[in-house]
Design a protein around this nucleic acid. Structure first.
Lengths: 351, 351
DNA sequence: AAGAATTCTGTAACCGTTTACACTATCACA
DNA sequence: TGTGATAGTGTAAACGGTTACAGAATTCTT
């Protein structure tokens, strides 16, 4: 079931078979028909390894994702894939599960497969690996890599703007004690989002206190973070979560402790995954256009276009506030230990 | 950056380099060291296409999934992948999105890649394609294919048992008007699950009426189905959903219509995804052990073992009832139009 | 009907590995 | 110091395609 077999059966050479299969219109149509018939009868499927080896290049794109389980990333993947398919590219995806060891082996795999381009939607990317990737000469686009660097192209959500919108909205509802719930990989000590939160609070919502809590990602992590937060002596009137999943976890814990949302505490998410609309109460969140992100990544991955591939660029994506049921007017703070102007505190729960 | 380059740099032949890279211990350790050094300096990554071409077989498994977005399938995938990695196999996954056209092209891709085995976790599999796959001589394991067939190995959840448990439980709470919410691909006119529901109702919960509603899969589909159900003149005291996602959609709609769960209506899911524990109210559902499924699929995919690959077998997985907050005692039916014994009705909403 | 132009097809080298086989060191032992 | 045995390495033929190049077949000119 290789080219040879088809060639024999059709009474032509392998070259001709190859031409037919690749739709080069140089072949006489009668020959073409004979070849297709033979291929069909033999149930022939070209060996794609041999093909990419011979061609020296593939039309396959690689995608690295930290957490495919999060529909947010999944949607990006889906958009990217559909853009790729539309242009005749295949896509292989590796889920790294936030494990850098897994990431390393996935990268090795992608390079081994000689993918035509690589989309890195991973938060556990470290400097070494980024260097290695750049050395590999594979076109690569990062999504939202924490610390921007020269020569890498990076599609990024404007978190600053999103944070401003959501914190501003909460502030307009009278909230002055806000907590930020993130997970470890978004909240390292030098994390940009951590800074963004603190700066936003400080600059745009005067007289507001802030607190940061970190946990694992996901539903469990959200619940756990809420637990810690409620056990602490910081009594927030609003809890801002780094993504919707964690927010749903937070909602769950509040409910278990008999705290009403939004009457007692307001909760917000980030991403606007489908679930945000379906949970109870429905989440106020920030919509991030995943389709746009996926498409943008794809477009910047393609070798075409006049812009030189190697000079990295930074693409900013705009988020949009979506108000639902989980936010409301701030309750009178029952034990505000004095809301002075300089009260901005940013102690992290995981020191 | 091919074997040749490394060989030159290390002053050996390509054969030796290959042997080093494949860990054949026939190489003298001093040579070995030189080769590894050269490979490292050149930042060499073997071309996996060439490798599988030369070897004539790959250690890559293919997975076809209808809906990777559903964490239920994702968990199976994850378990399968981790089992595979533990045995040195790679895994490529294709998401078919319930589109049979997409499935066809994914299958083509997998065959083209000459995967060592194929896991089909798809519900849109039709008879033709299954035939084609069997002809391709690739070991293949199906998950829960609707209509069992000779010569294919199929890992299946014992839905009958799960349905019995959940319907029996509801019956013990006094429910006698149950609706079943499924999506199109699980509820074709000849679907097994549809039959299972009806038979279970008939045999194990005497005096119970049943109704079937179908929609799209997922949160939206669940909401839509609930909407239709509530608009009909069948007034269920319990709604059984084919999976947890649809159940959450149902919960949402009930809440929007001011119907309390479980006080007014009980709702159940299926699968026991993480969300089932975190939504409000937490779902009573049926736990399906995804890790076990993933592992089982992998084990049955391997060429090892004395059991002949080609004689298909059927493996049944046992589900377990999980009671949470979404079910309670049946309310007195407000307009039961006479619950006679023969009242089992099975009209589908989408005729 | 012959030559030129054009269209179609075949030959063979190549892509980057693996691996059977042959060969050369190295070593143990008489 | 030869003689096997053994350990280490190289040569070259696959693997299954693609494609430059050349050659054959067809069509177009005159």
């Amino acid at each position: 079931m290789n080219l040879d077999a088809v060639a024999k059966r059709a009474g032509v050479s392998t070259a001709t078979v190859s031409r037919v299969l690749n739709d080069l219109k140089v072949v006489r149509s009668s020959t073409r028909a004979r070849v297709l018939k033979a291929a069909g009868e033999l149930n022939y499927h070209p060996n794609l390894h041999a093909r990419s080896l011979a061609r020296g290049k593939s039309r396959t794109l690689g995608i690295l994702v930290s957490n495919m389980e999060n529909p947010f990333f999944f949607d990006i993947y889906r958009a990217l894939e559909s853009a790729a398919h539309a242009r005749g590219y295949e896509v292989v995806v590796a889920n790294t599960d936030y494990r850098s060891e897994q990431l390393v082996s996935s990268v090795r795999l992608m390079i081994g497969w000689r993918v035509a381009g690589l989309a890195a939607i991973v938060s556990e990317m470290d400097a070494n690996l980024m260097q290695a990737l750049n050395d590999s000469r594979i076109p690569i686009v990062f999504y939202d890599v924490g610390t921007p660097r020269k020569n890498i192209t990076n599609v990024r959500v404007d978190y600053r703007k999103g944070m401003k919108k959501i914190a501003g909205y909460l502030h307009s509802l009278g909230h002055t004690r806000m907590a930020f719930v993130g997970h470890h990989s978004t909240l390292g000590p030098i994390s940009e989002r951590r800074k963004t939160f603190l700066e936003t609070i400080a600059r745009f919502t005067p007289g507001t206190e802030g607190q940061i809590v970190a946990g694992a990602d996901g539903l469990e992590g959200g619940r756990q973070a809420a637990r810690e937060l409620l056990a602490s002596n910081f009594h927030p009137t609003a809890i801002l979560c780094v993504n919707d999943f964690m927010a749903v976890g937070v909602l769950r814990e509040l409910r278990d402790q008999g705290i009403r949302v939004p009457n007692d505490i307001s909760v917000t998410g980030f991403d606007n995954i489908k679930l945000a609309e379906f949970c109870s109460p429905a989440l106020t969140t920030v919509h991030i256009p995943r389709e746009q992100i996926g498409q943008t990544i794809f477009e910047n991955l393609l070798p075409d276009s006049k812009r030189d591939q190697m000079s990295g660029r930074e693409i900013l994506i705009d988020p949009e506030l979506v108000v639902r049921e989980s936010t409301g007017l701030a309750r009178k703070t029952q034990n505000s230990a004095g809301g002075k102007e300089k009260s901005l505190a940013g102690r992290s729960a995981n020191s």
